[in-house]
């Protein structure tokens, strides 16, 4: 199935991309999407990046412990973002 992944903030900068269209097998989870991204874009590797990254699907923010339980669906739009800014 096709999904759309959008990136915001520091995650966008680290990826160097605003948006990706990806193919995933049915019954994949949000965690699977993140793992795929980490494998493909090694700059995302590291616990510090994951723990400060949030996900949002249909305007609902999802905590890390929920990622493995959230199944993604055809044409789903997933957003990854980081809530960090000033110094």
């Amino acid at each position: 199935m096709k999904i759309k992944v959008k990136f915001y903030g520091f995650v966008q900068l680290i990826m160097g991309k605003v948006e990706l269209e990806l193919e995933f097998p049915a019954s994949s989870s949000l965690e699977d999407v993140w793992n795929y991204l980490m494998q493909t874009y090694p700059q995302l590797k590291g616990q510090d990046i994951k723990k400060m990254t949030l996900a949002r699907i249909q305007d609902k923010s999802l905590e890390h412990d929920e990622w493995a339980k959230v199944s993604i669906t055809q044409n789903e739009s997933i957003e990854f973002y980081s809530l960090l800014a000033g110094g």
Partner: peptide, 13 residues
Amino acid sequence: TPILLNFKNKSGD
């Protein structure tokens, strides 16, 4: 605020 160092270093900031 030091957590910014980790993110910024990977992002070019």
